[in-house]
Computed example of a mutant assay.
Amino acid sequence: MSADISVVVCVYTEDRWEDILAAVASVRAQSLTARETLLVVDHNASLLDRLTRQYKEAGESGEVRVLANAGPRGLSAGRNTGIAASRGSVIAFLDDDAVAERDWLRHFAEGFEDPRVFAVGGRTLPLWESGRRPAWFPEEFDWVVGCTYRGHPEGRARVRNVLGGNASFRRSAFDVAGGFATGIGRDGDRRPLGCEETEFCIRLTRARPDAVLLTDDRAVIHHRVPGARERFRYFRTRAYAEGLSKALVSRSVGAGKGLESERRYTTRVLPAGVGRGLRDAVLGRPGGVGRAGAIVTGVAAAAGGYVLGSVRARRGAATFRVVEIGGEPGGVRSTGGEGAAA
């Protein structure tokens, strides 16, 4: 059984060669067959050539299409390239270092049976390189490593935004709202920015107030967490970068929507996490103090990033741009949407 779903995987480095092959293999093994898989290579000629040869020699060049990012360096432009080149009525996104469970696409497809639904996201579980979660690492901050965090809605529920590495959108969403804004998310810079999917989802629901965005935690992927991202230094840096990104999102869509989910998270979910950590410490359980301390540090780092990002945004330190999806496959063009970036 097949579905009219195109799967886009954005890739950028040969260091993830085995991960990329595993991601594609997991798409090909779906119980609901994808129409196509598009590998969008981010300004890496060697990787582009290697992947093209890999799937051509395997006789899979029709099922797996390898494309060069047609826009500026970065995840947003890569996704926009994949959207423009895809042929499915639904477009799903999978991280290049993740593998999807067998019914991943089937659960996405079920969500789109309701014509009001414009996006369906799934649940992302960490695969720790060390074999297990570091004792100090709080589940409330699993978004730091690109995974579903404690406090995220469970089951099948409406959400403000889906999480970009495990998400699907109706094609018409991009006709309505344009593509992902460049200048917000990751762009090859060493600082681990994000939030491009948050900004897009808010922009989508502003353009279509009746649009429903869902999360369905049956649509599961497993995301590899390398050893370098299990360290406290990365944790702190990523939290700070999230604050910078949230400042840009707020600049684009307003603080009301830009921080709507974050208010509940910081006032309810995180204090409860600190309480659990301290309780575990009292009971002599390992990692309790570390988790409580990590939550406090993460909040402080994100807040610091948000304050600095807001100041830079007001000064117009940089710009972001929204693109319109259209034209020839892989083609995008800029629209008038523009704002200051941190």
Rank of each mutant, 00 (worst) to 15 (best):
A294F: 07
L278H: 03
S334C: 06
A167N: 05
V220P: 00
D19Y: 10
E197D: 15
R102W: 07
V9H: 05
S6W: 02
V9L: 13
G337K: 05
F235R: 00
A92L: 07
S31Q: 08
G275S: 15
V225R: 00
A294T: 09
C147L: 08
G188P: 05
R236C: 07
L248P: 01
A135Q: 12
I295W: 03
A281K: 06
L244M: 14
A109Y: 02
D210R: 12
R321Q: 05
L51Y: 05
N69W: 03
G304P: 01
R116F: 07
G164W: 03
A219Y: 02
C201V: 06
S261D: 15
E14H: 10
A98P: 04
A300E: 10
D19V: 02
R264H: 15
F320V: 08
S310T: 15
L163M: 14
S6K: 01
E242C: 12
Y149N: 10
W104V: 02
T267G: 12
V27T: 06
P209N: 07
E154C: 11
A317D: 06
V176C: 09
D49T: 13
G164L: 05
G254W: 11
S89Y: 06
A239M: 14
F320P: 00
G122R: 00
P329H: 04
V7A: 01
L21S: 10
G59T: 05
R53E: 13
R264V: 13
A301E: 15
G155S: 04
A70Q: 11
L193N: 07
D97F: 03
T52S: 15
Y240V: 09
A272P: 07
R203T: 15
A45T: 11
G59Q: 07
T37S: 04
G258K: 04
T124Y: 02
R191A: 12
S168F: 09
D4E: 14
S46F: 10
D280I: 06
G326I: 02
